[in-house]
Design a protein around this nucleic acid. Structure first.
Length: 276
DNA sequence: ATGCGGACCTGTTAGC
DNA sequence: TGCTAACAGGTCCGCA
């Protein structure tokens, strides 16, 4: 479900509401694990280690959320259908509400995930060196990700550029929606071999990735069906999607019919006239 | 090293 | 209208 802009929206809301709150730093009072069978078993030690510690920061790396506590870092991934809601009223847990983190002021974070592709990890050492994060490529919104970098990273990679953009070792956190949108925006055919893309087009593609992600973050992300942020808000970027989920509809630039193909099991949308 | 297909799950929609 | 199959925002792993 959530791609980078959705995860970033959750991160910034939680940082605002939990870390930058005027009352000061927030203290964990209790952890309730109702179902530990997510993608990997939820570490039971969270229930021992978190209560009594302060949440100091909420960071993001790729689509991972990093909750930095005094005692260590909780690494959370929302998978395809995960959401974290920050609630105030006591609400009885519904189906797929797998975990709660309760705070001393009565608020709590509730993790909901029907498909259970999400995950929780706990580490007391540098989270960026965690097995899951160690091999990630650059953050797309940072300066280190640019046309020159992309050109070098695609060298010798003969797979389709669409597929390569989803490879987190090349660039972190670009998911299916935004890979499709960025390729449309830069006029590149999604099935073009990565290694055959010129430096000039790599520059345009890197810029398009940054632009589409930044615009979506500004809109609170994309809600296709059920994504909501921690405050329960849907993302508004769907209205701005040019090709994603638009097969059969006219291309917004030239009017040709938007095409859909399946590559590596993922839907790929493109304009056969505009994208070469 | 790269690339591919399978695996993990549930829920909703498309198509017959 | 109703059943079935396809598909959904992700990504790790094992094999060729």
């Amino acid at each position: 479900m959530p791609e980078l802009p959705e995860v970033e929206t959750v991160r910034s809301e939680l940082a605002r509401d939990l870390v930058e709150s005027p009352e000061g730093q927030i203290l964990v009072s209790k952890v309730v694990i109702r179902n530990d069978r997510l993608r990997w078993p939820v570490p039971r030690e969270l229930a021992q280690v978190l209560p009594g510690t302060f949440l100091r920061e909420v960071q993001r790396r790729s689509k991972y959320l990093l909750f930095c506590y005094d005692s260590g870092t909780m690494i959370v991934h929302l998978g395809m259908s995960g959401s974290l809601r920050l609630l105030r009223e006591d609400e009885p847990p519904r189906t797929h509400d797998h975990l709660d983190i309760l705070f001393a002021d009565g608020r709590y974070l509730r993790y909901h995930d029907p498909r259970r592709f999400g995950s929780f990890h706990w580490t007391t050492s540098d989270p960026l060196q965690h097995k899951l994060l160690r091999h990630l490529g650059p953050e797309p919104l940072q300066d280190g990700f640019n046309g020159r970098y992309l050109k070098a990273a695609l060298r010798g990679r003969r797979a389709a550029i669409k597929q390569l953009l989803l490879d987190a070792r090349i660039v972190a956190g670009v998911g299916n929606i935004y890979a499709n949108e960025a390729l449309f925006s830069s006029g590149i055919h999604p099935l073009r071999s990565g290694t055959k893309i010129s430096l000039a087009r790599c520059e345009r593609l890197a810029a398009a990735i940054k632009a589409v992600l930044a615009k979506s973050i500004a809109d609170g992300g994309t809600t296709l069906r059920d994504y909501v942020s921690s405050s329960g808000r849907a993302g508004e970027f769907r209205r701005r999607l040019q090709v994603y989920d638009g097969h059969g509809k006219p291309c917004p630039a030239c009017g040709s019919k938007i095409n859909r193909v399946i590559t590596n099991g993922r839907s790929t949308f493109y304009c056969p006239a505009c994208q070469r």
